[in-house]
């Protein structure tokens, strides 16, 4: 397959010849690496397919003999599924690998140049610490602010109607605006007020406030949903024991609501962390900005992959943790834990 790419390179076609000359310094024997994906596919798939075929034939035979075996049927079905899964996986993996190796590894080099990665990663990781710090501080603020909003929104009675209205307006407004816009409004707006307290704030502080304002609105809705999902008997029981409304909220309702929202909160934290990169519009040189600066210096996209790795190191384990918590709490509800 690679021969067909390699052969025309010797033709007088200028572009391809240049391409070949470019890759001339590559000491690896050309043609072999791009053969790897098809080879792997060829090696992996047939054994699985073979077992699948054999068990299917075995089952057909036992049916023909008028003595179908359930074990055999189940095994044939299972192996058919494995064969399909193996084929699909091989196809996808081989496709990705082939794409990376296309055009004489140009794709691979554009994204995964190890030298560029080694050079750029320390700076990027250093700047990424800012993303982490801001996101963690913002997350604490978001949870507190969202709890206040959620309680405000569910306060009972006619007397609190204006407060409910205010909260609903706030939540609707900041969920309706693009987060970037709010960040610009707050990030540039607060210092521009001329009020000493705001004007003296660092980019970190205004950035964190902007994230709290935006994400507080989303997370408040999560809390409200969780509070609504708590059976009304809980509030009745708390009130009947003499708890006031806010006491019942604080000691009985909110602890349950927060527990049930833990997976959502982790998911939203991942969003917050990712959106700290938006703060670059305020002039904050965080991880992603650092990576972009490096990209323009070395004319290679690898620094972007570097900052991706930084994000992934934090977000992927959090995603897994979220799933684990969901599964565990489901099991606990069913009384198996």
């Amino acid at each position: 397959m690679n021969q067909t790419i390699g052969d025309p390179a010797r033709s007088p076609d200028g572009l391809l010849v240049a391409d070949r000359a470019d890759a001339g310094g590559d000491k690896a024997p050309r043609g072999v690496p791009s053969m790897i994906p098809p080879i792997v596919a060829t090696v992996v798939f047939p054994p699985v397919g073979l077992v699948s075929l054999v068990s299917a034939i075995g089952y057909r035979r036992s049916v023909r003999e008028g003595n179908p075996s359930v074990t055999q049927a189940v095994r044939a079905r299972d192996w058919a599924t494995y064969a399909f899964g193996a084929a699909l996986t091989t196809l996808i993996v081989a496709g990705i690998a082939a794409f990376l190796l296309l055009n004489d590894h140009a794709v691979l080099r554009a994204y995964f140049d190890l030298d560029s990665l080694k050079k750029s990663l320390p700076d990027i990781a250093g700047a990424f610490v800012d993303n982490l710090t801001i996101s963690i501080i913002a997350e604490v603020g978001i949870i507190v602010w969202a709890l206040i909003l959620a309680v405000g929104r569910s306060m009972p009675g006619r007397a609190y109607a204006p407060i409910r209205l205010l909260v609903v307006g706030y939540i609707d407004l900041f969920r309706a605006l693009p987060g970037l816009l709010t960040i610009l409004l707050i990030g540039f707006g607060l210092p521009a007020t001329g009020i000493d307290f705001f004007a003296s704030m660092s980019l970190y502080q205004t950035g964190a406030i902007a994230l709290v304002v935006v994400y507080g609105a989303y997370v408040a809705e999560i809390f409200r949903g969780a509070m609504d999902a708590i059976p009304s008997g809980q509030l009745a029981a708390a009130r009947s024991l003499g708890f006031g409304y806010f006491g019942a909220m604080r000691h009985i309702i909110l602890p349950q609501a927060i527990r049930s929202t833990l997976p959502s909160l982790l998911n939203w934290y991942i969003s917050v962390l990712k959106d700290t990169s938006l703060l670059s519009v305020l002039g904050l040189v965080e991880g992603l900005t650092t990576a972009r600066i490096q990209v323009t210096f070395i004319s290679n996209l690898t620094p972007l992959v570097g900052v991706s790795l930084c994000f992934l190191v934090v977000t992927l384990p959090l995603s897994r943790l979220t799933d684990y918590i969901i599964v565990r709490s489901a099991r606990k509800r069913q009384g198996k834990a």
């Binding site: 008997g233 029981a237 708390a238 349950q256």
Partner: peptide, 9 residues
């Protein structure tokens, strides 16, 4: 109460 309404947490 009929349904106990114990605090589950």
């Amino acid at each position: 109460f009929q349904h106990f309404n114990l605090f589950p947490h």
